[in-house]
Write a protein that binds this DNA or RNA. Sequence first.
DNA 1: GTTAGTAGTTACCCAAAGGAAAGCGGTTAC
DNA 2: GTAACCGCTTTCCTTTGGGTAACTACTAAC
Lengths: 120, 120
Amino acid sequence: MKTIENEILMSKTECAGSLKNVIDAMYVLNGKWKLPVILCLVQSPKRFSEIQHEITGISPKVLSNELKDLELNYLITRKVYPTTPVTIIYEATEYSHTLKSLLNELSIWGEQHRKKIKEQ
Amino acid sequence: MKTIENEILMSKTECAGSLKNVIDAMYVLNGKWKLPVILCLVQSPKRFSEIQHEITGISPKVLSNELKDLELNYLITRKVYPTTPVTIIYEATEYSHTLKSLLNELSIWGEQHRKKIKEQ
DNA sequence: GTTAGTAGTTACCCAAAGGAAAGCGGTTAC
DNA sequence: GTAACCGCTTTCCTTTGGGTAACTACTAAC
Protein backbone atom coordinates (compact mmCIF):
# COMPACT_ATOMS: atom_id res chain seq x y z
CA MET A 1 0.00 0.00 0.00
CA LYS A 2 1.29 3.39 -0.97
CA THR A 3 1.66 5.97 1.72
CA ILE A 4 2.34 9.63 1.26
CA GLU A 5 5.88 8.97 2.32
CA ASN A 6 6.36 6.52 -0.50
CA GLU A 7 5.36 9.21 -2.95
CA ILE A 8 7.51 11.95 -1.55
CA LEU A 9 10.60 10.17 -0.46
CA MET A 10 13.10 8.13 -2.35
CA SER A 11 14.49 4.86 -1.16
CA LYS A 12 18.02 4.92 0.16
CA THR A 13 19.48 3.34 -2.97
CA GLU A 14 17.55 5.66 -5.26
CA CYS A 15 18.78 8.55 -3.19
CA ALA A 16 22.39 7.39 -3.34
CA GLY A 17 22.21 6.87 -7.11
CA SER A 18 20.60 10.22 -7.63
CA LEU A 19 23.21 11.78 -5.40
CA LYS A 20 26.03 10.32 -7.48
CA ASN A 21 24.43 11.64 -10.65
CA VAL A 22 24.00 15.08 -9.21
CA ILE A 23 27.59 15.16 -8.04
CA ASP A 24 28.79 14.05 -11.46
CA ALA A 25 26.77 16.78 -13.14
CA MET A 26 28.11 19.40 -10.76
CA TYR A 27 31.65 18.18 -11.37
CA VAL A 28 31.33 19.03 -15.05
CA LEU A 29 29.61 22.37 -14.53
CA ASN A 30 31.58 23.61 -11.51
CA GLY A 31 33.77 26.68 -11.39
CA LYS A 32 33.01 30.30 -11.81
CA TRP A 33 33.01 30.51 -15.58
CA LYS A 34 31.79 27.22 -17.10
CA LEU A 35 28.13 28.13 -17.40
CA PRO A 36 28.83 31.69 -18.55
CA VAL A 37 31.06 30.35 -21.32
CA ILE A 38 28.48 27.78 -22.40
CA LEU A 39 25.71 30.35 -22.46
CA CYS A 40 27.95 32.75 -24.37
CA LEU A 41 28.71 30.15 -27.04
CA VAL A 42 25.18 28.77 -27.23
CA GLN A 43 24.15 32.24 -28.26
CA SER A 44 26.59 32.19 -31.19
CA PRO A 45 30.01 30.75 -32.10
CA LYS A 46 32.86 33.05 -31.22
CA ARG A 47 36.62 33.55 -31.29
CA PHE A 48 38.82 33.54 -28.21
CA SER A 49 39.15 37.29 -28.01
CA GLU A 50 35.44 37.79 -28.59
CA ILE A 51 34.61 35.58 -25.63
CA GLN A 52 37.12 37.49 -23.54
CA HIS A 53 35.43 40.75 -24.40
CA GLU A 54 31.91 39.46 -23.85
CA ILE A 55 32.59 37.82 -20.50
CA THR A 56 34.20 40.71 -18.70
CA GLY A 57 36.56 39.72 -15.94
CA ILE A 58 37.77 36.40 -17.27
CA SER A 59 41.53 36.12 -17.77
CA PRO A 60 43.06 34.36 -20.78
CA LYS A 61 44.48 31.62 -18.57
CA VAL A 62 41.15 30.78 -17.02
CA LEU A 63 39.28 31.05 -20.31
CA SER A 64 41.80 28.72 -21.92
CA ASN A 65 41.31 26.16 -19.15
CA GLU A 66 37.54 26.38 -19.25
CA LEU A 67 37.46 25.92 -23.01
CA LYS A 68 39.64 22.81 -22.72
CA ASP A 69 37.45 21.35 -20.00
CA LEU A 70 34.29 22.02 -21.95
CA GLU A 71 35.78 20.50 -25.09
CA LEU A 72 36.74 17.36 -23.16
CA ASN A 73 33.12 17.06 -22.13
CA TYR A 74 31.89 17.46 -25.72
CA LEU A 75 30.06 20.65 -24.86
CA ILE A 76 31.96 22.88 -27.27
CA THR A 77 34.21 22.35 -30.27
CA ARG A 78 37.31 24.21 -31.36
CA LYS A 79 37.39 24.69 -35.11
CA VAL A 80 40.52 25.82 -36.90
CA TYR A 81 40.10 27.43 -40.31
CA PRO A 82 43.23 27.48 -42.49
CA THR A 83 43.06 31.11 -43.36
CA THR A 84 46.17 33.26 -42.99
CA PRO A 85 46.43 33.77 -40.15
CA VAL A 86 44.43 30.81 -38.90
CA THR A 87 41.00 31.57 -37.56
CA ILE A 88 39.89 29.67 -34.48
CA ILE A 89 36.19 29.49 -33.70
CA TYR A 90 34.65 27.97 -30.61
CA GLU A 91 31.09 26.80 -30.86
CA ALA A 92 28.56 25.03 -28.70
CA THR A 93 27.95 21.46 -29.81
CA GLU A 94 24.60 19.92 -30.48
CA TYR A 95 25.21 17.88 -27.35
CA SER A 96 25.36 21.05 -25.27
CA HIS A 97 21.66 21.45 -25.98
CA THR A 98 21.02 18.54 -23.62
CA LEU A 99 21.81 21.12 -20.94
CA LYS A 100 18.95 23.35 -22.01
CA SER A 101 16.27 22.11 -19.65
CA LEU A 102 18.78 21.94 -16.83
CA LEU A 103 19.89 25.51 -17.41
CA ASN A 104 16.26 26.49 -17.61
CA GLU A 105 15.46 24.88 -14.26
CA LEU A 106 18.54 26.48 -12.71
CA SER A 107 17.52 29.86 -14.06
CA ILE A 108 13.95 29.57 -12.81
CA TRP A 109 15.01 28.41 -9.38
CA GLY A 110 17.75 31.03 -9.10
CA GLU A 111 15.34 33.80 -9.97
CA GLN A 112 12.60 32.77 -7.58
CA HIS A 113 15.12 32.12 -4.83
CA ARG A 114 16.61 35.58 -5.19
CA LYS A 115 13.12 37.03 -4.81
CA LYS A 116 12.43 34.84 -1.80
CA ILE A 117 15.64 35.90 -0.07
CA LYS A 118 14.96 39.57 -0.75
CA GLU A 119 11.45 39.56 0.66
CA GLN A 120 12.45 37.86 3.91
CA MET B 1 9.40 36.38 -39.57
CA LYS B 2 10.69 33.60 -37.37
CA THR B 3 13.90 31.94 -38.33
CA ILE B 4 15.39 28.82 -36.87
CA GLU B 5 17.87 31.01 -35.05
CA ASN B 6 15.10 32.87 -33.30
CA GLU B 7 13.81 29.61 -31.94
CA ILE B 8 17.12 28.27 -30.78
CA LEU B 9 18.93 31.31 -29.51
CA MET B 10 18.14 33.76 -26.80
CA SER B 11 18.53 37.48 -27.15
CA LYS B 12 21.49 39.04 -25.43
CA THR B 13 19.41 40.47 -22.61
CA GLU B 14 17.53 37.23 -22.06
CA CYS B 15 20.86 35.47 -22.00
CA ALA B 16 22.34 37.89 -19.48
CA GLY B 17 19.31 37.62 -17.20
CA SER B 18 19.30 33.87 -17.40
CA LEU B 19 23.01 33.84 -16.68
CA LYS B 20 22.56 35.92 -13.55
CA ASN B 21 19.84 33.57 -12.34
CA VAL B 22 21.97 30.52 -13.00
CA ILE B 23 24.91 32.05 -11.16
CA ASP B 24 22.69 32.93 -8.22
CA ALA B 25 21.37 29.37 -8.07
CA MET B 26 24.86 27.94 -8.22
CA TYR B 27 25.97 30.29 -5.47
CA VAL B 28 23.45 28.76 -3.09
CA LEU B 29 24.10 25.18 -4.12
CA ASN B 30 27.87 25.30 -4.52
CA GLY B 31 30.40 23.40 -2.48
CA LYS B 32 31.06 19.74 -2.20
CA TRP B 33 28.41 18.82 0.33
CA LYS B 34 25.35 21.09 -0.06
CA LEU B 35 23.37 18.87 -2.39
CA PRO B 36 24.30 15.66 -0.56
CA VAL B 37 23.06 17.15 2.70
CA ILE B 38 19.83 18.34 1.11
CA LEU B 39 19.17 14.96 -0.45
CA CYS B 40 19.97 13.25 2.83
CA LEU B 41 17.50 15.39 4.72
CA VAL B 42 14.80 15.32 2.07
CA GLN B 43 14.81 11.58 2.57
CA SER B 44 14.07 11.99 6.28
CA PRO B 45 14.82 14.39 9.16
CA LYS B 46 17.98 13.49 11.03
CA ARG B 47 20.27 14.37 13.90
CA PHE B 48 23.75 15.78 13.47
CA SER B 49 25.50 12.51 14.12
CA GLU B 50 23.13 10.60 11.87
CA ILE B 51 23.96 12.87 8.94
CA GLN B 52 27.65 12.45 9.71
CA HIS B 53 27.31 8.69 9.54
CA GLU B 54 25.20 8.68 6.40
CA ILE B 55 27.38 11.06 4.43
CA THR B 56 30.70 9.38 4.89
CA GLY B 57 33.69 11.66 4.60
CA ILE B 58 32.17 14.89 5.84
CA SER B 59 33.88 16.43 8.84
CA PRO B 60 31.91 17.96 11.71
CA LYS B 61 33.26 21.41 10.91
CA VAL B 62 32.14 21.27 7.31
CA LEU B 63 28.79 19.72 8.16
CA SER B 64 28.17 22.43 10.72
CA ASN B 65 28.93 25.12 8.15
CA GLU B 66 26.78 23.54 5.46
CA LEU B 67 23.82 23.20 7.83
CA LYS B 68 24.08 26.89 8.74
CA ASP B 69 24.25 27.94 5.11
CA LEU B 70 21.29 25.80 4.17
CA GLU B 71 19.27 27.13 7.07
CA LEU B 72 20.02 30.72 6.02
CA ASN B 73 18.59 29.85 2.64
CA TYR B 74 15.44 28.36 4.18
CA LEU B 75 16.22 24.93 2.78
CA ILE B 76 16.41 23.16 6.13
CA THR B 77 15.33 23.90 9.67
CA ARG B 78 17.03 23.15 12.96
CA LYS B 79 14.55 22.03 15.56
CA VAL B 80 15.46 21.82 19.22
CA TYR B 81 13.35 19.55 21.42
CA PRO B 82 13.57 20.27 25.15
CA THR B 83 14.23 16.73 26.20
CA THR B 84 17.10 15.99 28.57
CA PRO B 85 19.49 16.14 26.96
CA VAL B 86 18.12 18.33 24.20
CA THR B 87 17.44 16.62 20.91
CA ILE B 88 18.35 18.52 17.78
CA ILE B 89 16.73 17.49 14.52
CA TYR B 90 17.48 18.88 11.11
CA GLU B 91 14.82 18.60 8.48
CA ALA B 92 14.25 19.68 4.92
CA THR B 93 11.74 22.50 4.65
CA GLU B 94 8.74 22.55 2.40
CA TYR B 95 10.58 25.19 0.43
CA SER B 96 13.38 22.75 -0.30
CA HIS B 97 10.91 20.85 -2.43
CA THR B 98 11.13 23.67 -4.98
CA LEU B 99 14.50 22.12 -5.74
CA LYS B 100 12.95 18.81 -6.70
CA SER B 101 12.66 19.30 -10.42
CA LEU B 102 16.09 20.91 -10.50
CA LEU B 103 17.66 17.99 -8.66
CA ASN B 104 15.82 15.69 -10.98
CA GLU B 105 17.18 17.42 -14.08
CA LEU B 106 20.68 17.44 -12.60
CA SER B 107 20.41 13.76 -11.84
CA ILE B 108 19.17 12.86 -15.30
CA TRP B 109 21.80 14.92 -17.03
CA GLY B 110 24.58 13.68 -14.76
CA GLU B 111 23.63 10.08 -15.43
CA GLN B 112 23.43 10.37 -19.20
CA HIS B 113 26.60 12.42 -19.30
CA ARG B 114 28.52 9.80 -17.36
CA LYS B 115 27.35 7.19 -19.87
CA LYS B 116 28.31 9.43 -22.77
CA ILE B 117 31.80 10.01 -21.39
CA LYS B 118 32.32 6.32 -20.77
CA GLU B 119 31.33 5.18 -24.25
CA GLN B 120 33.62 7.68 -25.99
C1' DG C 1 61.83 47.51 -38.01
C1' DT C 2 58.22 48.66 -35.02
C1' DT C 3 53.64 48.31 -33.70
C1' DA C 4 49.38 45.82 -33.22
C1' DG C 5 46.43 41.87 -33.12
C1' DT C 6 45.43 36.78 -32.37
C1' DA C 7 45.66 32.77 -29.45
C1' DG C 8 47.20 31.45 -26.14
C1' DT C 9 51.21 29.75 -22.14
C1' DT C 10 53.98 30.40 -18.05
C1' DA C 11 55.17 31.81 -13.53
C1' DC C 12 53.91 33.66 -9.38
C1' DC C 13 50.60 35.00 -5.77
C1' DC C 14 46.43 35.01 -2.85
C1' DA C 15 42.12 33.67 -0.78
C1' DA C 16 38.72 30.41 0.05
C1' DA C 17 37.38 25.56 0.59
C1' DG C 18 38.03 21.70 2.72
C1' DG C 19 40.42 17.94 5.74
C1' DA C 20 42.45 16.29 10.40
C1' DA C 21 42.57 16.41 15.02
C1' DA C 22 41.69 18.05 19.37
C1' DG C 23 38.81 20.10 22.69
C1' DC C 24 34.55 21.57 25.20
C1' DG C 25 30.27 21.73 27.86
C1' DG C 26 26.64 19.05 28.88
C1' DT C 27 24.39 14.32 30.05
C1' DT C 28 24.02 9.55 30.94
C1' DA C 29 25.55 4.92 32.13
C1' DC C 30 28.55 2.07 34.86
C1' DG D 1 34.68 9.24 39.10
C1' DT D 2 35.30 7.93 34.61
C1' DA D 3 34.13 6.63 30.22
C1' DA D 4 31.17 7.55 26.40
C1' DC D 5 27.92 10.02 23.53
C1' DC D 6 25.95 14.41 21.53
C1' DG D 7 26.58 18.69 19.05
C1' DC D 8 29.28 21.15 17.94
C1' DT D 9 33.88 24.82 17.82
C1' DT D 10 38.69 25.78 17.31
C1' DT D 11 43.10 25.37 15.37
C1' DC D 12 46.10 24.20 11.97
C1' DC D 13 47.27 22.64 7.52
C1' DT D 14 46.89 21.50 2.47
C1' DT D 15 44.68 21.85 -1.82
C1' DT D 16 42.43 24.18 -5.34
C1' DG D 17 40.61 28.03 -7.96
C1' DG D 18 41.28 31.93 -9.69
C1' DG D 19 43.79 36.65 -10.57
C1' DT D 20 47.92 39.37 -12.52
C1' DA D 21 51.31 40.08 -15.45
C1' DA D 22 54.63 38.92 -18.50
C1' DC D 23 55.88 36.44 -22.41
C1' DT D 24 55.77 33.59 -26.91
C1' DA D 25 55.04 32.61 -31.89
C1' DC D 26 52.92 34.03 -35.73
C1' DT D 27 51.02 37.51 -39.11
C1' DA D 28 49.94 41.91 -41.07
C1' DA D 29 50.14 46.74 -41.59
C1' DC D 30 52.82 51.01 -41.63
